[in-house]
């Protein structure tokens, strides 16, 4: 049912779930009459999808559904290419100096 809905229909359905605009009694266990769990899971569906897509997870490719110890990166994540994230870094040369050092606050304390 859900997968046959239009995009907008799916979003409206998720929205109805998280706002509890449904008859909670009609839901299957463990969601039946369990408003807190419905809200938690609906929210997590959104968060985990976004985290998964924009992290390196899709790049585990054919191993992405394995247990975490048995995943291997097979390519550079497509989403990181899309947004220009360079991936794991050793560092960046963007040091623009210090606005303040702790030693300066100590001098001030002694003066006062």
């Amino acid at each position: 049912m859900f997968s046959r809905l239009s995009r907008k229909g799916r979003v409206r359905t998720l929205s109805a779930l998280e706002n509890l605009e449904i008859d909670l009694y009609l839901l299957p266990s463990p969601f039946q009459n369990n408003a807190g769990l419905v809200k938690y899971v609906t929210d997590a569906l959104n968060r985990l999808s976004m985290f998964g897509y924009y992290s390196e997870w899709p790049a585990y490719g054919s191993t992405r559904l394995n247990q975490p110890e048995h995943r291997r990166l097979e390519f550079f994540p497509l989403s990181w290419n899309q947004i220009g994230y360079p991936g794991v870094s050793h560092g960046y040369r963007d040091f623009r100096g210090f606005l303040l050092k702790i030693a300066e606050t100590r001098v001030k304390n002694e003066e006062s």
């Binding site: 979003v11 929205s15 959104n46 968060r47 985990l48 976004m50 897509y53 992290s55 390196e56």
Partner: peptide
């Protein structure tokens, strides 16, 4: 933060629901 954590927290987590709706 890195992109996955940024997407999740900034654009995936809200008490206000979906921006579109």
């Amino acid at each position: 933060e890195s992109p996955g954590l940024s997407a999740q927290t900034l654009f995936g987590f809200s008490q206000d629901g979906y921006n579109r709706l």
